[in-house]
Simulated assay, not measured.
Amino acid sequence: MIFATLPTGPLEVNCYIIGCEKTMKAAVIDPGGNADRILQRLSALKLQTVMIINTHGHFDHIGGNGDLLKATGAELIIHRDDSILLERAGEHAAAFGLRAEPSPAPTRLLNGDETLQLGELTLQVIHTPGHSPGGVCLYVDDYLFVGDTLFAGSIGRTDLPGGHHQLLIAGIKEKLLPLPENTKVYPGHGPMTTIGEEKLHNPFLS
Score class of each variant (00 low, 15 high):
residue 11 L to V: 05
residue 12 E to V: 04
residue 13 V to S: 15
residue 14 N to Y: 02
residue 15 C to E: 07
residue 15 C to R: 08
residue 15 C to I: 06
residue 16 Y to H: 09
residue 17 I to G: 12
residue 17 I to Q: 13
residue 18 I to A: 09
residue 18 I to R: 15
residue 19 G to E: 03
residue 19 G to L: 02
residue 20 C to Q: 04
residue 22 K to Y: 03
residue 23 T to W: 13
residue 24 M to V: 01
residue 24 M to G: 06
residue 25 K to D: 15
residue 27 A to K: 04
residue 27 A to V: 08
residue 29 I to D: 09
residue 29 I to R: 09
residue 30 D to G: 02
residue 32 G to M: 11
residue 32 G to H: 14
residue 33 G to W: 00
residue 34 N to C: 06
residue 34 N to I: 10
residue 34 N to W: 01
residue 35 A to Y: 00
residue 37 R to A: 12
residue 38 I to T: 00
residue 40 Q to W: 13
residue 41 R to L: 00
residue 41 R to P: 00
residue 42 L to R: 00
residue 43 S to L: 08
residue 43 S to T: 10
residue 44 A to R: 13
residue 44 A to V: 08
residue 45 L to V: 11
residue 47 L to P: 07
residue 47 L to C: 01
residue 47 L to D: 00
residue 47 L to A: 06
residue 48 Q to H: 02
residue 49 T to W: 09
residue 51 M to H: 12
residue 52 I to V: 04
residue 52 I to L: 06
residue 52 I to G: 02
residue 53 I to P: 13
residue 53 I to T: 14
residue 54 N to I: 03
residue 55 T to H: 01
residue 56 H to T: 11
residue 57 G to M: 06
residue 58 H to V: 07
residue 58 H to M: 12
residue 58 H to Q: 11
residue 60 D to K: 09
residue 61 H to G: 02
residue 62 I to E: 06
residue 62 I to Q: 06
residue 63 G to V: 13
residue 66 G to M: 14
residue 66 G to S: 14
residue 66 G to P: 14
residue 66 G to D: 15
residue 68 L to A: 01
residue 68 L to Y: 00
residue 69 L to N: 01
residue 69 L to F: 04
residue 70 K to Y: 15
residue 70 K to L: 13
residue 70 K to R: 15
residue 72 T to S: 07
residue 73 G to Y: 05
